Amino acid sequence: MTAATKILDPCCGSRMFWFDKDDQRTLFGDIRDEQHVLCDGRALNVEPNVIMDFRSLPFEDGAFKLVVFDPPHLTRAGRDSWLRAKYGILTSDWRDDLSKGFAECFRVLATDGVLIFKWNETQVKVSEILALTDQRPLFGHKSGKREKTHWITFMKRGE
């Protein structure tokens, strides 16, 4: 991490929504480092700068101005499915995992820093997820054909 690094994406996956997938201000992390060929022949590469677990981030308190938290949102997916390859999968302890993930993301976020949270509620409702943190969102937006993907913005409150 350099002094220019101000953004953390601890679940970067294949960096699907990033315009600049190599943004120099961003540290891209993930628990996975793997390559896949999708059914249509496209490559799907999960290649983080640093292997990390969002439940236990290896950074000092307040180290980032912006955190992008896009954890896996699936509780079920076929072992070799493209959905699992693309998004990852939650463990059976997903409530505890995501609660720890929120706590860690807010811990490494500077006071008044911004957390962008992305969640697809196909299998788990966003209301169940927001109940896992005591931080309250400022605003959000639904997207996608069925409006199942939520983009939610938080600003970390001071202690």
Score class of each variant (00 low, 15 high):
T26A: 15
L66Y: 12
C11H: 07
Q24I: 05
L138G: 08
E159A: 13
L44A: 04
E47V: 02
T133F: 04
P58Y: 08
R157P: 00
D53S: 07
F19R: 15
D9E: 14
L138I: 08
L130P: 10
G140M: 05
G62F: 03
R84I: 02
M155K: 15
M16T: 13
D22C: 11
T75I: 15
L57A: 03
R55E: 09
E159L: 11
K145T: 12
I31H: 01
G88Q: 04
P137A: 09
C39H: 12
P71K: 06
V46Y: 02
I129R: 11
T111F: 13
R84C: 03
D97P: 06
K125V: 01
H36P: 00
C105S: 15
F117Y: 10
W151A: 12
L44V: 00
E60C: 09
F102T: 04
H36Y: 15
E121F: 01
D9F: 06
H73K: 13
K156E: 07
G140S: 09
I89T: 09
S99E: 13
N45D: 10
L132R: 05
I7H: 10
R25M: 04
L38R: 08
D96H: 13
E104G: 06
Y87Q: 03
S99F: 00
V50D: 00
T153P: 00
V114P: 00
F139D: 14
L38P: 03
D20W: 03
R42H: 11
P48H: 03
K21M: 07
D20L: 05
P137W: 06
V114Y: 07
R42I: 04
F64E: 11
Q24C: 06
I116W: 08
V124E: 08
L130G: 11
P10G: 06
E147P: 02
P58R: 10
V67T: 07
L132C: 03
A63S: 15
D80L: 08
F139I: 10
F139H: 13
D112E: 12
C39F: 10
P72Q: 10
S14D: 11
L38N: 03
C105P: 01
D33Q: 01
I116F: 10
L57T: 02
E60D: 14
K148F: 03
D61M: 05
D93K: 14
D93R: 15
D61Q: 12
K86N: 12
G140Q: 07
K156H: 07
R79V: 13
T133A: 05
D112W: 04
F54R: 03
K148R: 15
I89L: 15
R107K: 13
I129D: 09
S99C: 13
P72L: 06
F54E: 06
T111H: 13
R55W: 04
A110W: 01
G158Y: 00
K86Q: 12
I129L: 13
K145F: 08
W82F: 13
R15S: 08
D70Q: 14
A43F: 02
N120D: 12
